[in-house]
Design a protein around this nucleic acid. Sequence first.
DNA 1: TATGAATGAGTCTTCATTCAT
DNA 2: GATGAATGAAGACTCATTCAT
Lengths: 193, 193, 193, 193
Amino acid sequence: MSKENATEDNSRRMELVRAAARLFRDQGYERTTVRDLGNAVGLQSGSLFYHFRTKEEILVAVMALGITATTEQLAAALSRAKTPRDKLAALFHVHLHSLLGDNQAALEVMLYEWRSVSATAKPGLIVLRDRYEALWQETLDEAAAAGLVKPDTRLLRRTLLGSLHWTVQWYHGNGELSVAELADRMLELTLIA
Amino acid sequence: MSKENATEDNSRRMELVRAAARLFRDQGYERTTVRDLGNAVGLQSGSLFYHFRTKEEILVAVMALGITATTEQLAAALSRAKTPRDKLAALFHVHLHSLLGDNQAALEVMLYEWRSVSATAKPGLIVLRDRYEALWQETLDEAAAAGLVKPDTRLLRRTLLGSLHWTVQWYHGNGELSVAELADRMLELTLIA
Amino acid sequence: MSKENATEDNSRRMELVRAAARLFRDQGYERTTVRDLGNAVGLQSGSLFYHFRTKEEILVAVMALGITATTEQLAAALSRAKTPRDKLAALFHVHLHSLLGDNQAALEVMLYEWRSVSATAKPGLIVLRDRYEALWQETLDEAAAAGLVKPDTRLLRRTLLGSLHWTVQWYHGNGELSVAELADRMLELTLIA
Amino acid sequence: MSKENATEDNSRRMELVRAAARLFRDQGYERTTVRDLGNAVGLQSGSLFYHFRTKEEILVAVMALGITATTEQLAAALSRAKTPRDKLAALFHVHLHSLLGDNQAALEVMLYEWRSVSATAKPGLIVLRDRYEALWQETLDEAAAAGLVKPDTRLLRRTLLGSLHWTVQWYHGNGELSVAELADRMLELTLIA
DNA sequence: TATGAATGAGTCTTCATTCAT
DNA sequence: GATGAATGAAGACTCATTCAT
């Protein structure tokens, strides 16, 4: 609701955040200049500073967008799912679509530019990330109770997230395998038996 | 033996590469200045360029060291192992010790600074990486044949490497769990039944 | 009129080009630092790069200014001149005034810093130079037809330009001989009989 | 005779001076590094400093070589020539062969790197140059007395030297015209009638 | 003489940020 | 909000020169 909320209103801000997400993913945060950012939205570099106080603030906004959007999508998918098995599947599908789908650069930036976030900004992002991971933990616990996955769910959560994050390094949707198929096969590897 | 081999002789070079590994891991490649590198080995920044032509050449040397050292350790461990199960375990143990053990920063740099490597230097590193992953593939294939893991070994390889790489983001040897124990538990999650 | 035209408008650019002309002439291009250039116009060295992309771009602008300004002056003088003899005289007068007159450093830079121009920038400057030399060639041909000079006008053109260029090495307007008188005496040496 | 005489003995010194002449001509003095110089004679850069105290000393040696060698050649040619006309021709031939002939880079360096010579080294070189120009002056005076050239010989000397110097900018022995022919045609332009 | 390693001052250039208009 | 111009600190890299061996 507030003016400071990067995830809504203020179309110029959002336009910038989306453009930044793509640039940060493609070139890296450090290698992306404030001029690049300006060019991408038709603004002079100096003008950006009426929307964001610093370049890092843009980075944080990108990350916040990535994680909150994904969290929202996961929450929605989980509430649609009926069985523990369907919910488990939702974890894989939502995460991979967010990471590998079209212009979904924001989440990837969160993974690979973490080191560029200042100590003061980290706590806020960690809260958002924990919210996302809490959904994972609940779902995995249910799945374990249902005998679908092994019971070491805390380690399993970290293991699976690592696997999924890593897909950006090798998956390039060149026909062979759709994102949905990939999600199914990764789910398959996780299931007991 | 060759003068061009960054992984041996030439003590000054090696000293620098090791110091660079730690700095690149801790601060990131972009944020590490050549002055930082010089200070770390007691040299003026300009003097580095007697040993390396560019800063990027140092990065490449770090990565080459990380991957070749790990490959050698894995090869040695595999040749010591008797059973498919022991070999499988070696994958987890060697990888995690290389990644999380003391001053083993080099491999981590390989994972997180890939984007800073120029297009011309990438192919050489990819060759080294493929050599490492080939050992993984062989071992996983044997394990699958022995009924230890699921048969989708190509995806399994990527999945497992992703899981292991990701440990650097959350594992900080604070007592609770040793690296060896972690390796065992991650192996456990992977085994069928 | 165009933004890219270094020879007009954009007063800061022109101011810089003029200051650079003098510095490049006096100290040489290589020995002139961007700090020197900045100081000369009251700017930080980094600020120059808002106006020019590289130091070499400044050099090229200086040269372009030198040759185009001289060409324009020659064209004007030739159109004012009535006889072949008067036109011939204009060649000497305009060239020497451009080269030896007050703050006319730009043309001299063109002569003595040619080696510092990159291969990509040379063609553009050569076009400008050829335009200037074409005026010379026409005028010499007319003079030869009128029996004023020897008929080997292509070699004559090169010979005369060499003579005139060289004056910067020995002429220092210390009273004895004005630039106009020098021009007249050099013309005299060229005339038949 | 002395150890400091760059024009004789000490083959390593001479080898270096000759190599330097070519490099300085081709790349310019400022752009030629001491490493380039070392490479050209199979020496490490540091080793050069056992032969010359500074890089500039090498430049001065190159220039001294260029001008003294040319002076000697001119003196020899003049003593062989019988008539004023033959002597006049010798000026053109010797100068152009020295400037444009094979590996005769040294004289050209003298013309184009003068600005890089320190104030302390200039007087010595000027003495050498004056010796050369004195031969020119004498010869031109004789020629004027014989009615071969116009009587303004001081200006004529400068004019002719400028013309000849400039040839390096446009003459590239591509068949059409030999150096000897060029000398003859330039002489022709200078003669009265 | 020669080398290999190091120095240290200096170079051009980059870039996030500021600010008067 | 937006611009264009400027800042100033920092960056990687260069290079003549030195010197212990």
